[in-house]
């Protein structure tokens, strides 16, 4: 198996491992047992150059930071990056590596006073007060229901008498109406008999006769009433007389 690698990937510490995984027989003895890390400025610059050249993603630095788990911007790029909210977010997401002082995460005295002011308006009553109010409301509701029940019960007790009264009233009205009707019919009959032939009740003569009959009837009734009264009077007087006589 032939390994075709570009020179920039052939770094000393890789060669050994690559050969280890190759199936071909390796004749090269592992000579690099102790790797000397060269950390001079020149070497570091070289490493950086290599890294720069390796990076072919063409991502913006902020995006590169994001995908490698660092905060996107070290210095503020807009006004929002100066806000407390943004800095809190940076701390929450990237931890102490974000360089944000975690004291920012806690509310300030002003925040606390504002919050307390808000709560005083939004939650004006304590739990105890609300419980008392609820209990009071419940009691009032129950009282209302109880009162209504009592009212209905008293009315229900009277219901039978009211029903009887109403029925009596209706029956009385009906009997009166029937009596009046009968009377009228009788009158009309009498008038008819007087004429001796069938006459239209709307006829003038008929009406005249009817009025006359009615008048007579009324007179009779009046007389009857008068007589009855006289009779009553006489009876009273007689009773009085009897009383006097007894004495």
């Amino acid at each position: 198996m032939s390994l075709c690698l570009r020179p920039k990937y052939l770094r000393p510490n890789l060669i050994g491992s690559l050969f280890r995984y190759s199936t071909a027989t390796t004749e090269i003895a592992e000579t690099n047992d102790h790797v000397l890390i060269d950390d001079s400025d020149a070497a570091q610059a070289k490493e950086a150059e290599i890294e720069r050249k390796r990076n072919i993603s063409r991502l913006a630095p902020s995006h590169q930071n994001l995908i490698s788990g660092r905060r996107p911007y070290e210095e503020a790029k807009s006004i929002t990056h100066l806000t407390v909210k943004y800095n809190r977010k940076m701390y929450g997401k990237y931890g102490s590596a974000s360089g944000v002082n975690p004291i920012l995460c806690f509310p300030t005295r002003k925040d606390i006073s504002e919050r307390l002011e808000y709560e005083a308006v939004a939650y004006p009553y304590s739990i105890k007060q609300m419980m008392d109010q609820a209990a009071q409301k419940r009691r009032e509701e129950e009282l209302k229901i109880e009162q209504r029940d009592r009212e209905v019960a008293t009315k229900h007790a009277k219901l039978e008498t009211w029903k009887k009264e109403l029925n009596d009233k209706i029956a009385k009205k009906l009997s009166e109406a029937n009596a009046a009707k009968e009377k009228k019919e009788r009158l009309v009959d009498e008038v008819r008999r007087h004429f001796g032939f069938k006459l239209d009740p709307r006829d003038e003569r008929f009406q005249e006769m009817l009025a006359k009959r009615e008048k007579e009837q009324k007179k009779l009734e009046k007389m009857a009433r008068k007589e009855a009264r006289e009779k009553q009077m006489i009876a009273k007087l007689q009773q009085k007389n009897v009383g006097i006589g007894d004495k």
Binding site: K85, K93, F106
Partner: peptide
């Protein structure tokens, strides 16, 4: 919420 880096608030009544 934890990623927003805020202090845990109190539960309201």
């Amino acid at each position: 919420f934890f990623e927003s880096g805020q202090a845990i608030p109190r539960r309201m009544i």
